[in-house]
Design a protein around this nucleic acid. Structure first.
Lengths: 308, 308
DNA sequence: GGATTTTATAACATTTTGTTATGAAGGAAG
DNA sequence: CTTCCTTCATAACAAAATGTTATAAAATCC
């Protein structure tokens, strides 16, 4: 036994996550004494007390929590290497790993990607949904080849390419009084129960500003970080919201009504790839095609009558 | 043989790095046949040709090079984790939550803690100022790892470690008639407007007792629970007080004069940590270093001429 | 062709990691 | 207070992984 061994780290992580040796054993598919011994060995090896007996269970020490944070940041398991080997074996003509923020990952992007793949039968795709800052991290760490994240997040290891901005749209319950209007303005929202996006969103700030500039008072009692939750809540009658058009059109058949909103507030996002690596040519192609697809989508949106 | 095993990956990496089985064996401190076998097993397991015989040596295929990139990330990750463990063991990393009574929290302790942190760049600190009984509660409830509170407050869930007692000092306005004396006694306080500490303080009781025993009558019309307020009031000319030396020296440049007081009345305080948990080693270290720091401080205080 | 260097393979030995069985500790219920 | 249950720790053994020495095969150079 020389350095830390990966199996020990897996066992350690499982105990922190589950709070017990027995549950951890289940998680990594071994028996409890195996985990018990690995934890003992690891504590010996690193020279730290990582867990304390509390009642009949184990509680991580503050050192364990610090170490665990580093494990989550830095641990690449053998599973990942094995997966990579599998991908190398099965990939012959191309491979693309994409991470995208939920607004795109929940329908719009997968549908586009599906069509992209149809024309490229030998291309393999991994597509994940992550919050924007996690997308940036995944690109920076080489865990994916291409990312799509909201805003203009700067990172030394990541290169940014702006995509076409898309206008926020009003999303209402189907039987709402405002559904009769073909276009909504700030004043229409006066006194309405408003479903807000999370505080950390750039767009949130922008939206709040528009209503403030128009002296409109909304009932502000619902907040969610995810646009699809906002649309679901609107569909349930809980309130009305402003939402990016990708998510809004995905939900248009689910009990909501979507209307253009004036003045225009933009949902801005970008394609990201690692600064120090040449992206696979197929990623370049994906970005270009996706940009063209968005342009087509936005044109149709602008031309369209109210969606019912 | 289930997933990839760590030693295979090490052997693989060594062969890529050295270009030969024999040199790789030397690098990972085993014999050549061990490496040869592990490479064979790995190629079988992942179903890839990773090396080709080129002359008498081995050359990695492009698949091997792709896999190697992922392997290198895993190795870097394990090194990081190992390093973190080392830093935790040597008490230079982790996090430490401290709650301290205001007399310490308002300058003396933060300045000490700042120096402590400079030598431990990976250590995170949360430092709060709370009244002593709130410090005890915070420690008992696990909201902080370490507390500093006045007196000898007993609590079942908290373990107490006395710190060096510090002598109360006389604090006067700069232009006070007693500023000419190098040392003050109870009788000097006769008829003076006295700024008292709060009723719940042990020290308050002790101080009042000293003056009673000497038959001294003070004008008792000002009271505050916080020693820094007492010093500020003294500085404003409102009266004179007895104060712990930590706060007194913090305020020494703010319109007050500080003088030793006889007989000695001690400001007693203790370090607290949860009885049922081993404190992080870094907390142990903090206590020991802080104790040494207080000793140095008190020595200099005793050696010093009247502070002006 | 022979000598040298390198890798591959075989047989056996040692170490590591897994399992089953059992003991110890803590907490809840009667 | 005793009993029962749950959980972790430890021991003994089994299986798998990893190590060694000895030998064979392949490639290159003189």
């Amino acid at each position: 036994m020389r350095g830390l061994n990966p199996r020990q780290i897996e066992a350690f992580r499982a105990v922190v996550l589950t709070g017990g040796v027995g549950m951890a054993a289940k998680l990594i598919n071994v028996t409890q004494p195996a985990v018990s011994r690995m934890i003992r060995d690891l504590q010996q090896q690193v020279g730290l007390t990582l867990f304390e007996r509390r009642g009949t269970g184990l509680v991580p020490t503050s050192e364990a929590l610090s170490l665990y944070a580093e494990v989550e940041r830095a641990f690449v398991g053998l599973d990942r290497i094995s997966q990579m080997a599998t991908e190398l074996r099965t990939r012959r003509a191309g491979f693309l790993r994409i991470a995208a923020l939920p607004a795109l990952a929940n329908g719009f992007l997968p549908r586009f990607a599906g069509r992209f793949l149809i024309e490229r039968p030998k291309l393999d795709l991994v597509l994940s949904g992550l919050v924007s800052h996690a997308v940036v991290a995944a690109v920076a760490q080489g865990q994916c080849d291409l990312g799509f994240a909201e805003g203009s997040i700067e990172h030394a290891a990541v290169r940014l390419e702006r995509m076409l901005p898309a206008p926020y749209m009003a999303v209402l319950p189907q039987d709402h009084r405002l559904a009769r209007k073909t276009r909504l303005r700030p004043v229409d929202f006066e006194g309405e129960s408003f479903i807000s996006l999370g505080h950390s969103s750039v767009s949130r700030f922008r939206i709040d500003r528009v209503f403030a500039d128009h002296g409109v008072r909304r009932v502000m009692r619902i907040e969610t970080p995810l646009s699809e939750i906002a649309c679901s809540l609107a569909g349930s009658g809980a309130g009305i919201t402003l939402c990016d058009p990708f998510t809004a059109t995905e939900y248009a058949t689910r009990g909501i009504v979507v209307r253009p909103f004036e003045p225009r507030v933009d949902f801005e996002f970008a394609a990201l790839y690692a600064a120090q690596r040449t992206p696979p040519p197929v990623a370049r192609e994906f970005i270009d095609n996706f940009q063209a697809h968005i342009m087509t989508f936005l044109r149709q949106l602008a031309r369209r009558a109210p969606s019912s």
